[in-house]
Design a protein around this nucleic acid. Structure first.
Lengths: 341, 341
DNA sequence: CAATGTTGCTCAACCGATGGAGCATGATTG
DNA sequence: CAATCATGCTCCATCGGTTGAGCAACATTG
C-alpha cells in the first residue's frame, strides 16, 4: 500500500484527487487553478473535482506551485514595530492594497534590530518575493544590495536610501508647520515666545534631521534663535525621552516638539510626574499621530503622516517600476487640537 | 548556451554554485543547509562554496526546500487588526518567540473581516504551515475545521472555540476587578455609587459576555442592581461607541466600563464634545491597555491582558500538543491610575 | 596483502504543481 | 468516405533542493 493511499495525516494532493476522480493530476491541477477552460476540460469534470477538493479539504501546496511558476506575486515588507499607529497602519493597509492587486503580501517585524532586519530581508528573498519594501530600515542600502544580488526590486519606505527608490513623508514641511503651530499656541495660551525644545529621534536618522531643519527654520523665520542644547535626540524610545527631559531644569513656560508618539509616551510620563502645569505650563506638538493624542492635556497638534498616500505611491512604483531619484516626498496633514476648556 | 549559464536576472541556484565550485549540487546543498559535516564534506570545500554563495548573493529557494523536506516549521497566525497595542504586541512578540524557537512565523491581518479570515487561513495552509493560530477570530471553529481537514494543528487565541485548544484572558476576573476599581473611584472622587454603564464590544462575543458577567457580579456584590439599559455593546468601533453614548441623556455623575481601547477612542470623543466635567463628572475604566490611557482625564484604571503569558501558554501547546479542553485562562494585570492633581 | 574502515564526495529519485505537446474519439465538411 | 476540426483529456519534463544509497581512493589492521 503506497503512502498516498492511506488517508492519514498527509495532506491531500492533486494526485489523491486525481485517483478519486478517476482522472489525471494535470486535469485536477488545471481545474483548481482556473486554467481548465483554456485546457478544454469539461464542466462536468471540473465540478466533480471541485466538489471532491472541497470535501477532502484540499489546499494547493504553494511551495510546489511557486517552484514551477515563473512569478510568485509575493511582495515582502519589513516593518520595525507594531507599537504605534503609523507602522501598524502601514502594515495593515499594505496587506489590504496588495491583496486588492492580486499580490501576495508577507510582512515581518524586525524590532528595530539591524541584524534582524537583514535576516528578515534574506528570509523574504528565500520566499521568492519579487519586490521587497524596506520600511523604516536602519540600513536600507544594505538591503537594496542584497536584493540587487538576487535580482529583486526593492523600495524604501519612511526612511530613504540612496540605492533604491524611496517614498518618505515631507518631514521638513510638516515639521516647520508643526513648529509654527506650537509657537502660535505658546504665544496664545502662555504669552510666551520660545525658543522651543525638541525631544526624540536620532541624529543619525534622515527624518530626524529633516524635522530638526524645519524646527529650526520655523523659529528662525520668526526671529527666534534656536538653542542647540534644547535638542534631545537620543533615540526613539519612551524611556530615553523621559530620561533626557528629567535632566533638564526648565522653569517657567516650555514649548516642546515631540518627535514620534513613542517619545510622546516618555514626555507624558515626565509631564505628569515632574511638572506642575500651573507653575510651569507646557505646550507641545507631536510629529506622528495617535488617536489619543488629541486628549492629552498640553498637546496642541499632531503632524499625521499620509500612510494612504505613501502606499499609493508605493504601488505605483511596484507596478510601473521607478528610477532611483530623489525621494518622493508625501505631504503630511496637520491636526490642530483645540485648547482644553 | 543554457539558460543557467547566462548570469542574467535569474536567481543563483545550487546548480550554478556547483558549476562554479566544480562540485556537485548535493555537496553545495548540504554545505549551505548545515548538514555537510554529517555528509563528510571537507572543510576546504565548505568554505569555498560558502564564499561563492556569499559572492553570488545566493539565497535558498524556500519553495524548493520546503517541497522536499518533511517539516516546514512554519507557524501561521491571523490577527484582526494592528490598530491597538494588544494585537500589535501579540503579533510582534509572537514573531520574536517563534524565531527564538527556530520556527518560521507568518502573520497576516484580517481586518475583522470573516471572509478574509477564512481566506487568510487557507493561504497559510497553502504555505504548509504546521500550526495555525487564530487570534480574535470571528468564527474559530470554521478555521479549526479547515485545519483539521488539512491535518494541521490549530490553536485559538484571545477568543475561544470549541474545536481546538483556546488560550484567552481571564475576562471575568479582570472585569470584576476593574468594575470594583471604577466603583471605588466613583465613590472616592464623586461620592457616587452607581450603577455603572458599559460600552463597546459585541453581545455575540465570548469575551464581551464574560466581561459583562464580571461587570454585573461586581455591582451585585456591592448591593447595586445592574441596569440592563446601561449596557451599550453594539460593536468594537470607536464610532459606534460614540454614537451609542450620544443617545444617552445622563445627567449627574457617571461611571463607565469601557470594553477595549478602540471603544475608548469613541468614549473620549464623546466626553470632550458632550460632557462638562464640572457639571457631569465621569470616571471610567478600560478593559485593555494603551500607553496613553494613563494620561486621559477620568480614566481610573486599565485591565491589561498578559500578552507574554498567553504566548508562553501558546508555545507550550505548540511544542507539547494539547487536548481540547476548557479554555486556558490567563490572568490580567490591573493598572490603577492615580487621580489627576 | 586481503579485509575492513574512513574520507570525501556523486547519483538518482523525489517532493507537488504546471504547461507544452500529443493522442484518442466523435462531429463536420468537401 | 477521407480529410479536417473540435473536444476532452493524458504524458512527461520541469522547477530547485534534499536524501538515501553508493562508489572511488586511500589508510589501517590482522
Amino acid at each position: 500500500m503506497s503512502d498516498r493511499e492511506q488517508n492519514s495525516s498527509k495532506r491531500t494532493t492533486i494526485y489523491d484527487l486525481a485517483k478519486l476522480a478517476n482522472t489525471s493530476p494535470t486535469a485536477v491541477s488545471s481545474i483548481l487553478n482556473g486554467t481548465w477552460k483554456k485546457r478544454r476540460i469539461s464542466k462536468r469534470l471540473a465540478e466533480e473535482v471541485t466538489r471532491l477538493a472541497e470535501e477532502q479539504g484540499y489546499s494547493t501546496n504553494i511551495q510546489a506551485s511557486l517552484l514551477r511558476r515563473a512569478r510568485s506575486n509575493i511582495v515582502g515588507m519589513i516593518v520595525p514595530k507594531y507599537d504605534n499607529r503609523y507602522f501598524g497602519d502601514m502594515a495593515e493597509r499594505f496587506e489590504a492594497m496588495a491583496r486588492e492587486r492580486g499580490l501576495f503580501p508577507v510582512v515581518t517585524c524586525t524590532q528595530r534590530n539591524p541584524d534582524l532586519e537583514m535576516e528578515a530581508a534574506k528570509e523574504l528573498l528565500s520566499f521568492q518575493a519579487e519586490t521587497l519594501i524596506a520600511t523604516g530600515a536602519t540600513d536600507p542600502d544594505r538591503i537594496t544590495a542584497l536584493c540587487k544580488a538576487a535580482g529583486v526590486t526593492s523600495i524604501n519606505l519612511d526612511l530613504p536610501g540612496s540605492a533604491a527608490p524611496s517614498i518618505i513623508s515631507d518631514n521638513y514641511a510638516a515639521a516647520r508647520a508643526l513648529t509654527e503651530m506650537i509657537l502660535d499656541r505658546c504665544a496664545a495660551d502662555l504669552g510666551w515666545t520660545g525658543p522651543l525644545h525638541f525631544v526624540g529621534g536620532r541624529m543619525s536618522d534622515h527624518n530626524t534631521l529633516e524635522r530638526l531643519r524645519g524646527f529650526r527654520d520655523a523659529q528662525t523665520a520668526r526671529g527666534i534663535t534656536p538653542v542647540e542644547q534644547n535638542v534631545l535626540a537620543r533615540g526613539y524610545s519612551a524611556d530615553q525621552s523621559e530620561a533626557a527631559l528629567e535632566q533638564l531644569r526648565v522653569t517657567g513656560p516650555m514649548g516642546l516638539f515631540v518627535n514620534s508618539t513613542i517619545s510622546l509616551e516618555g514626555v507624558m510620563r515626565w509631564i505628569t510626574t515632574h511638572r506642575d502645569e500651573a507653575e510651569h505650563p507646557i505646550r507641545f506638538g507631536t510629529f506622528d499621530w495617535d488617536p489619543f493624542g488629541a486628549f492629552l492635556p498640553g498637546n496642541v497638534g499632531m503632524a499625521r503622516q499620509d500612510v494612504g498616500g505613501m502606499l499609493a505611491h508605493l504601488f505605483a512604483l511596484i507596478e510601473n517600476g521607478g528610477e532611483v531619484t530623489a525621494p518622493i516626498l508625501v505631504p503630511c496633514s496637520l491636526e490642530s487640537i483645540a485648547a482644553a476648556r
